[in-house]
């Protein structure tokens, strides 16, 4: 027998199921008085630095129907491109911006919506920069393991063109699935990022 590696296997994933909100956003399903507030609903405080934006969209299944029972988490850098995380060694992130958000998709329309700020660019390897982006993690009934993807910004064409991660997408026709279009809604810059689980417009998901 050779020596043992003594490594453990990761706990296998199971679907979050239809009632993920009970654990993640209990107040949203009217389980009140247990937590004061649901975690991740608010990303931005008055002191937060950076351009205020809305990020919204829907998640479509293979029949084109929006998911009304999904949970979306986002993780992003602050306006300077720093993450509010102990693992961030490059500097101190804006203390008024957590960078993490969590929202259910609406039970009727299927829309999710975050009020956040536009993140700065962060480095890839060898100090090349990635384009500004927001990491997404999506769970729902019928999704056996959480789906990782990224949202990029439609008004960052130059940065997107240089992004080493977008460059890794072999089928260039799929790159636009990661790019949110910018519009103005109620005086707020609004990025719409629809996610397609299947079909011609299937979003690029990451194993990362």
């Amino acid at each position: 027998m050779v020596q043992k590696l003594d490594r453990l296997k990761e706990t296998p994933s199971q679907t979050a199921g239809p009632y993920v909100h009970i654990g993640a956003t209990p107040n949203w399903v009217e389980i009140t008085g247990v937590w004061n507030e649901d975690l991740g609903l608010v990303l931005v405080a008055p002191e937060t630095k950076g351009e205020r934006i809305i990020v919204k969209g829907r998640i479509f299944d293979g029949s084109g129907t929006p998911l009304k029972d999904a949970l979306v988490e986002i993780w992003q850098a602050d306006a300077q491109g720093l993450y509010n995380s102990p693992q961030e060694k490059r500097g101190k992130a804006d203390p008024h911006f957590t960078g993490w958000g969590r929202q259910p998709t609406d039970g009727t329309t299927g829309e999710y919506k975050f009020e956040t700020i536009k993140p700065g660019r962060v480095p890839y390897k060898e100090s090349r920069l990635m384009a500004p982006h927001i990491t997404f993690w999506i769970v729902a009934r019928g999704i056996n393991i959480g789906l990782h993807t990224r949202m990029y910004f439609g008004d960052e064409e130059k940065a997107n063109g240089e992004c080493p991660v977008l460059a890794r997408i072999e089928h260039k026709v799929r790159v636009p699935t990661l790019i949110a279009s910018r519009s103005e809604e109620n005086g707020m810059p609004t990025y719409t990022f629809d996610i397609h689980l299947q079909g011609e417009k299937e979003t690029v998901f990451f194993d990362i």
Binding site: D61, G62, S63, T65, L67, A140, R141, G142, I143, N144, L147, V165, R168, I169, R174, L197, Q198, E202, T203, V204, F205, F206, D207, I208
Partner: peptide, 12 residues
Amino acid sequence: ILRSPQYPLLSL
């Protein structure tokens, strides 16, 4: 069945 991505994941 309708909620499973069909393209390969992008490994990074």
